[in-house]
Design a protein around this nucleic acid. Structure first.
Length: 677
DNA sequence: TAGCCTCGAGTTCA
DNA sequence: CTCGAGGCTA
């Protein structure tokens, strides 16, 4: 090596220095808005880094600032399972409702103490989870359904306000730090983007949220790189190597790590300060640089958060206090009655089209007859319309004072609007149903259900296609799909030979299906996605489910008498039996469940109840133990209980167990059962 | 038996 | 997102 040349070691040092330095300037520019150097100086650093990286490719790093221009287009986003589910938030819309939220907290804590909170604006964008390992950015994922999202690592890398290396020493040494934030467009950036898109003759975005979603979910991340997306973080969802006592501490920690923190965050020492905060933000809403739809309030003390826990979809320690949604006035033109898969007849409002929150609304659900009665709405009324959660259109109320006298009452139909059968309304139920199972509407809806994503998932067959196929007489039921021939499809309007062949292929590929999806696809009344899974897990084969008796079914947790009867009826029905046989005869194959880990766990399917004090462990520890072995713990004895574990000084649960004839075991026997003795 | 929670089934628009 | 209803717990 020539003496005037730098050693590799020195090159590596310089590259690393440049990367850190550029990252630091990114932080000063994008997060702090206080650049220390001019654009020219910044460009010079980048040029030098690029030069060195080109010459010494052995020092490649995907997190280098030079890589923030985007990666080659991907074919599709990979799915990633979140380490910790990203929950949504419960919501309130008034101070009274917020106080109910606080009352619930007091109830759960078992004491009425002053609760302190953190409050932040609720950004209206796209939620993301970002993961750092040893201070280094490793992954970005969208929220998705909360459990699984899309891997958008390449896209996230192009957002320059997101550090590739955490700045504080404390954060850099954590093995894992997973944080949650929101991608948004600032209002001015959004307008500028739309102007540019319009100039180029491209489609513009209806609102800033769509722009954020559309920009992030680009398979070609170099497009994301050119969009002025902003990211703001507000939660640490998972961390290894550090404990936090308060949420406020988490926010400060993220800020110190160089992460862009959600602006206008505030500590509130009690509910009164929360109310002030809400009112301030609401007043300032128009002046904020971005769209928000409320404020997020979190219980500050992590200890309380832990005690409060969560329900399936949201934590009990946080709430979104939403602003009133945007409303508009329209005219109720008419009410039509639509017939669903189960024959349920529901009223839909036909409205004079009106633009609200980024979309033109012309229809809105009225839910059911009781709702119409409650609203007291009539055809011809001027009505207030809003988008619930800024999504689903909803009639809020009629403007009675604007009535002309020409309004007509809304009369629920006595006969099915599709097939003319007389509707039935069981006593005590709110919904009217069409009893005709051969009603064209029910047939169409059940086929749509059958092909939908969570059932047979046949790509290329959607609502429109099902209707066309039915209208053209190519199918009469879902089983007919599997014998469709491309030659017949081609003749349909707008279905070329290529498309027809592709759809037939998709249909054939869907023939093999997992048991839970198959059960869901059948559309048994009362059995949705969740119960389909429960049933599949329990019976493991379609035959076992088909032959299940009412008594067997009600033994299963979550299956009560109503659902059990519905399932028995479904499989007893001659027409349904023939339909199943037809499915098999056209080649549908249901995969049975293999003996899974879950099933092999020693306590799976067993329910435990504890009564009295245990000597070797606490109730909580015992519960955890049972659950880790696949069992369930319940707090009261029922005939579904398998074991009642009787400790010191048992209570009434012991008597109840005796009465119901449920097995009781001592602590020693319990320990033997779980393999601890 | 009431109250909490989850689920199913209906809904809109781009 | 909304409602009603079913299931479970207290």
């Amino acid at each position: 090596m020539k003496s005037n040349e730098k050693s590799l070691e020195e090159i590596k040092k310089e590259i690393e220095f440049l990367r850190r330095e550029i990252e630091r300037h990114n932080y000063l520019y994008y997060v702090k808005n206080q650049p220390e150097i001019s654009d020219e100086e910044y460009d010079a650093l980048m040029d030098r880094l690029r030069e060195l990286e080109e010459k010494y490719p052995q020092f490649y790093d995907p997190n280098s600032p030079t890589q923030r221009v985007g990666a080659p287009p991907a074919k599709e986003f990979a799915t990633v399972r979140h380490t910790v589910p990203l929950l949504s938030l419960d919501k309130v819309t008034s101070y009274e409702e917020f106080m109910e939220f606080q009352n619930r907290i007091w109830r759960f804590l078992g004491k009425k103490v002053e609760i302190d909170y953190t409050a932040t604006p609720k950004l209206d964008g796209l939620s993301i989870a970002v993961r750092y390992e040893h201070g280094r950015f490793v992954r970005g994922a969208t929220r998705g359904d909360g459990f699984e999202g899309e891997d958008v690592t390449a896209n996230v890398r192009t957002i320059k306000s997101i550090p590739m290396y955490l700045m504080s020493e404390e954060a850099a040494k954590l093995p894992v730090l997973e944080i949650r934030g929101e991608f948004i467009f600032h209002k001015d950036d959004f307008e500028r983007l739309n102007e540019e898109l319009a100039k180029k003759g491209e489609k513009t975005f209806a609102n800033a949220r769509n722009a954020a979603a559309g920009s992030l979910r680009q398979l070609d991340s170099s497009i994301t790189a050119q969009r002025p997306l902003k990211a703001y973080f507000y939660e640490i969802v998972y961390v290894e190597g550090r404990e936090f006592e308060t949420h406020w501490e988490k926010l400060k920690f993220m800020e110190a790590a160089g992460l862009p923190l959600v602006p206008y965050a505030r500590y509130c020492k009690n509910d009164e300060e929360v109310r002030e905060y809400y009112e301030n933000i609401l007043r300032e809403r128009e002046n904020l640089p971005f769209e928000i739809d409320g404020v997020v309030i979190k219980v500050n003390r992590i200890e309380y958060q832990r005690i409060l826990g969560q329900v399936s979809h949201h934590p009990r320690w946080a709430v979104a206090w939403k602003f009133p949604s945007q409303e508009a006035i329209s005219t109720l033109r008419d009410v039509i009655w639509s017939v669903g898969r189960t024959g349920a007849v529901t009223p839909v409002a036909i409205l004079e089209p009106v633009f609200i929150a980024g979309a033109t609304i012309s229809r809105a659900t009225l839910h059911n007859e009781d709702e119409i009665e409650r609203l007291g709405v009539m055809i011809g009324d001027k009505v207030v319309v809003r988008r619930a959660g800024d999504v689903i259109p909803e009639v809020v109320k009629p403007l009675v004072e604007l009535r002309t006298g020409k309004e007509k009452p809304i009369v629920p139909p006595t006969h099915c609007p599709v097939c003319g059968a007389k509707l039935s309304k069981p006593p005590g139920e709110v919904i009217r149903r069409c009893p005709n199972r051969f009603c064209p509407a029910q047939i169409a809806e059940s086929i749509k259900h059958f092909v939908s994503r969570k059932a047979f998932d046949i790509e290329g067959i959607g609502d429109k296609q099902v209707e066309t196929l039915l209208r053209e007489g190519l199918i009469e039921d879902a089983a007919d799909l599997f014998t469709l021939e491309p030659e017949r499809l081609e003749k349909l309007e707008r279905w070329g030979p290529v498309l027809a062949a592709k759809i037939v292929r998709n249909i054939q590929n869907a023939k093999r299906i997992s048991l839970p999806k198959f059960i869901f696809a059948l559309g048994i009344p009362g059995v949705g996605e969740h119960l389909a899974n429960v049933l599949a897990k329990h019976f493991k084969s379609l035959d076992a489910l088909r032959n299940a008796t009412f008594d067997e079914l009600i033994q299963i947790p979550e299956i009560g008498p109503n659902t059990a009867q519905s399932i028995v009826d479904f499989f007893a029905d001659e027409h349904n039996r023939r339909f199943l046989e037809k499915l098999f005869s056209v080649g549908v194959e249901v995969e049975e469940i293999r003996e899974e880990e879950e099933a092999e766990k020693p306590l799976s399917g067993k329910t435990f109840v504890f009564t009295g004090a245990l000597s070797s462990m606490t109730r909580d520890e015992a519960s955890e133990l049972v659950e880790s072995l696949g069992g369930r713990v319940s707090s009261s004895v029922s005939r579904k209980t398998d074991y009642v574990v009787v400790g010191e000084n048992p209570g009434s649960k012991y008597d109840k167990a005796k009465k119901l004839g449920v097995t009781t075991i001592t602590e020693e026997e319990f320990l033997k059962l779980v393999g601890r003795a």
